[in-house]
């Protein structure tokens, strides 16, 4: 009700908002509805109703193995990016590091360097020169592109925290380590959680880097789906997309229930 009222009060803003929702949601509805179609190709409007394509998607070994590898990659890359990014952020905010802005720029540079360039560089150095497997190259590449999120998002919540809080803990008898774990870290928790969520999703959805570094032994789900769609145009791909969408919704609900979006994204724009 309140939304309708707002739209009435500000007609232009309301129209734009509705338009925005349409642009975002209609393609999703299109994909979801074709996943249940009995037709042999992805087409709209869908014909009939079947769950067969979901069976096909779940039974597709290439999809399932690459899903597992994608999840694994996203999880490990997120953990490593946070393990490097969070302490680095704290050091940059609280410590006296020479060339602080340079270091900060370095951590954020994967945001501006095209991912294909990062991918090519990794291919050259890690796979060709050092002879490492593509899974190592992928892990390094994904970690690199996640670092800006880890640094930026935790940095934003750290910037909001009063440095005197940590000093107060020290004054009351806490060692620097103790003060970090009992005071600083709990204050950063929503920021770290949102950084983790963003990082995970970014890695999981990444195409350019994964595309450049793929090979038969290790490939991610988005690349596999891209490959599939170039060969086939049946609704299996729509079913797989719908499953991913459902999983994302579940994750979002869990995040909302446990921490709350306001708190998670409060880490970014309070």
């Amino acid at each position: 009700m309140s939304m309708i009222k707002t739209n009435n009060a500000r007609p232009v803003l309301g129209t734009l908002a509705v338009l925005g929702y349409i642009i975002m949601i209609v393609p999703i509805l299109f994909v979801v509805s074709t996943a249940f179609s009995t037709g042999r190709t992805v087409s709209f409007p869908p014909k009939g109703f079947t769950l067969d394509w979901f069976g096909a998607a779940l039974g597709n070994n290439t999809f399932m193995s690459s899903l597992g590898q994608s999840l694994q990659l996203a999880l490990i890359a997120t953990v490593i990016a946070l393990a490097i990014g969070v302490p680095a952020t704290i050091a940059m905010h609280r410590g006296k590091i020479p060339g602080k802005s340079l270091v900060q720029g370095l951590f954020l540079s994967p945001l501006v360097v095209p991912e294909l360039v990062v991918g090519l560089a990794l291919y050259q150095q890690i796979m060709v020169v050092l002879g490492q497997s593509n899974s190592i190259a992928l892990l390094i590449g994904h970690t690199a592109i996640l670092l800006p999120y880890a640094v930026r998002v935790t940095g934003a919540s750290l910037a909001l925290a009063d440095p005197a809080i940590e000093e107060a803990a020290r004054g009351l008898g806490a060692s620097p380590l103790r003060a970090f774990f009992t005071v600083t870290l709990p204050l950063l928790r929503p920021g770290i959680f949102s950084a983790a969520l963003l990082s995970f999703v970014t890695s999981f959805n990444n195409v350019p880097l994964s595309l450049l570094l793929q090979d038969r032994s290790f490939r991610t789900l988005p690349v596999t789906m891209l490959d599939y769609i170039q060969q086939n145009y049946d609704p299996t791909i729509a079913a797989m997309s719908t499953l991913l969408l459902a999983a994302t919704v579940v994750v979002a609900i869990i995040a909302e229930r446990t921490v709350g979006f306001a708190k998670i994204f409060g880490g970014i724009n309070k």
Partner: peptide, 16 residues
């Protein structure tokens, strides 16, 4: 500071 045993009240209060 943790070895000095002093009580400090900050301008911003700095409560946890």
């Amino acid at each position: 500071p943790e070895k000095r045993g002093l009580g400090m009240v900050f301008q911003s209060y700095a409560l946890f």
